[in-house]
């Protein structure tokens, strides 16, 4: 069920260069949101930029009626978003999308995040605390490693890698994954990040016969499954990322 709310900005803070965290007061969306879902934000009461911007839900606080998002400054829309002040109002719809579904029998879960993709995974970790969670976070440099504390607070074992070696292991996140998989029996993998990274993880998962779920990004218009603008190619044909996704079984995708 989707809803539309005029959400008051509670906080909007820079995390590191070009990455911001915003807390929004939208009790209806907060009450419904599950990990892996996203909100659609109208950044300006204006026609340029026209369309809403899809951003994943990073955290919720049902008691306060808030949600958190972690966003990267990409273009027109996010540049406007970063200058928004507390108390300002944004029109927000959500929660959109299917979200992550963890199989009840899965005990050992591996979460792999890159860039702002770690945010929805941090939300997932919080909701599946009773599972044995392994998290691999990758980034170019130390300041691009997000949500480490969130994962630790959820009891996850966290493995970090940076391309320049400024934090954790030096190298790509995939190298850490292979180590984790060699030492542990992982039942399911969830990954969100750059598409090259997700493809590499999906490849590794396939070789080892581990179910792997990826979260896709596509340009969107309606966000409700009505316009077929956001589709991705799957074995069953074109499916809408906004409602049939954004989370797909990697084995189902033709990408």
């Amino acid at each position: 069920m989707l809803t539309i709310e005029n959400a008051k900005i509670v906080t909007n803070q820079e995390l590191t260069r070009d990455y911001f965290v915003m807390t929004l007061n939208c009790p209806k969306i907060s009450a419904l949101a599950r990990p892996g879902q996203f909100v659609n934000i109208h950044v300006l009461e204006n026609t340029d930029p026209l369309l809403r911007r899809p951003i994943s839900i990073y955290d919720i606080d049902k008691s306060k009626g808030t949600i958190k998002i972690l966003y990267f400054i990409k273009g027109k829309g996010t540049n406007i978003l970063k200058n928004k002040k507390e108390e300002e109002i944004l029109s927000v719809t959500g929660p959109h999308g299917n979200g992550f579904v963890v199989h009840p029998d899965s005990k050992n879960i591996l979460l792999v995040g890159g860039g702002f993709g770690t945010a929805p995974l941090a939300f997932l970790a919080k909701e599946i605390k009773e599972k044995n969670i392994f998290t691999a976070i990758g980034g170019r440099t130390k300041d691009l490693i997000f949500c480490e504390k969130d994962f630790k607070d959820s009891g996850a074992k966290v493995f970090i890698s940076t391309e320049d070696g400024s934090y954790g292991e030096k190298g790509l996140v995939t190298e850490n994954i292979i180590k984790i998989l060699n030492q542990n029996k992982i039942d399911e993998i969830f990954t969100v990040g750059p598409s090259l990274m997700m493809k590499a993880i999906a490849e590794i998962a396939k070789k080892r016969n581990i179910p792997c779920h990826v979260s896709l990004e596509e340009r969107m218009a309606c966000g409700v499954g009505a316009c077929y603008g956001c589709v991705c190619k799957t074995k069953k044909g074109y499916e809408t990322v906004c409602t049939q996704g954004p989370v797909f079984d990697s084995g189902e995708l033709e990408w």
């Binding site: 026609t47 340029d48 930029p49 026209l50 369309l51 596509e218 340009r219 969107m220 218009a221 316009c227 077929y228 603008g229 956001c230 589709v231 991705c232 190619k233 044909g237 074109y238």
Partner: peptide
């Protein structure tokens, strides 16, 4: 009808272009 390959939409100044292809 399957429709056109992706990307199918792009925002423009106060508008958008679509090439859904009647999926």
């Amino acid at each position: 009808k399957e429709g056109n390959p992706t990307p199918r939409i792009i925002e423009t100044a106060s508008g958008m272009l679509n090439a859904i292809g009647l999926q």
